[in-house]
Design a binder for these strands. Structure first.
Lengths: 177, 177
DNA sequence: TCCTTTTCTGCAACTAGTTGCATAACCGTG
DNA sequence: CACGGTTATGCAACTAGTTGCAGAAAAGGA
């Protein structure tokens, strides 16, 4: 049940149309919650039906015509409530770990190259985050909103670092075999 | 497409019935890939149909009667191949980060308690992993299979540590506000 | 023996997320 | 102005995962 809340957040930051949202998801929110334009359009429909957002009035928009949405009071209330709700962390669900487990049974042939590739991808991701951090969060007196956005980015960097760490150790271990 | 491979792995370690698999998922594989008994039964059906596993012959099993499966040669081949296939890491998708992002817009009221709770859960999880490590992987001369299973566990520990790290920093930051 | 509980398999109906494609409007250029 | 690319919305059909429940068989008493 996170997608609707992601959309509410994005719309509060700035009222937008479906495609605009999809693009913003690709850039910022998408770093930790991805959604296709399809999901977004469907969810916008549901949110409008349940009265949490509304389409900004325009000349009766038809298919193919831009439609902007804004958050209503009920939507903001729902989001505020959600922020402090209790929800357990998602357990790990990672195919790469599964593959290592399988390798314990059928042999680790070909795994080194794949681990090496993952290592490079995670390094690149970390570098991306670092340059975002430099660009957006190197002010002296950040406002509360910016501090919060910053810690979210830090979480991404922390996780990428731990993958890099683990992959480096694991590659060393695998090369010994 | 990971569940069938998880099942093949588990069945290679030991031929089992559906419920037995479900229980083993809860214990070991489930630390990094969860599945309900429902998913497992359906997947067993599909794997049998496509000739990767077969039910061990018994007196024509009916509903409610235990059915054991074993992996066929084709299944082992598929798993071996999968181990070295190229598959990108899953991007992060985490509701807690989303909630912090929302908090930047509607205010962080009530978040500290929730972060505290998550911190405790991650600490507990890390402790669990540590005791599994102590129990299963403290031999002198581990075999290749055990080394591989060990690095998988290390990945879990690495990730939990980074959450603990981040949550500790973030709580300090939030308490300042 | 009969009854209850537990084990085990499975159907049905749901939510979430993905992929491919259709269709309309908008915009620039020859 | 027409036609070709881009912008924008959306339907349909799919896979993956979840939830609730039904029903058969086995096991364990009283």
């Amino acid at each position: 049940m996170s997608l609707p809340h992601a959309i509410l957040t994005a719309l509060l930051e700035k009222p937008s149309s479906g495609l605009e949202l999809a693009r913003r998801f690709d850039k910022s929110i998408g770093h930790f919650w991805q959604a296709t334009h399809q999901q977004i359009y469907r969810e916008l429909g549901k949110l409008e039906q349940s009265g949490l957002i509304r389409a900004l009035p325009a000349e009766q928009p038809t298919r193919g015509q831009r439609k902007e949405y804004e958050v209503l009071a009920a939507g903001r209330a729902e989001l505020t409530d959600w922020v402090s709700r209790s929800e357990d962390p998602r357990p790990i669900r990672d195919p790469l770990l599964l593959r290592l487990r399988a390798a314990a049974v059928v042999g680790p042939a070909g795994l080194v190259a794949e681990l090496q590739r993952h290592l490079e991808l995670h390094q690149r991701q970390l570098a991306d985050y670092a340059s975002i951090e430099e660009r957006d969060f190197s002010h002296d007196q950040p406002a509360v909103e910016d501090r919060l956005r910053h810690v979210v980015l830090r979480a991404g960097m922390e996780l990428e670092s731990s993958w890099i760490n683990w992959l480096t150790q694991t590659l060393a271990e695998l090369r010994k075999l």
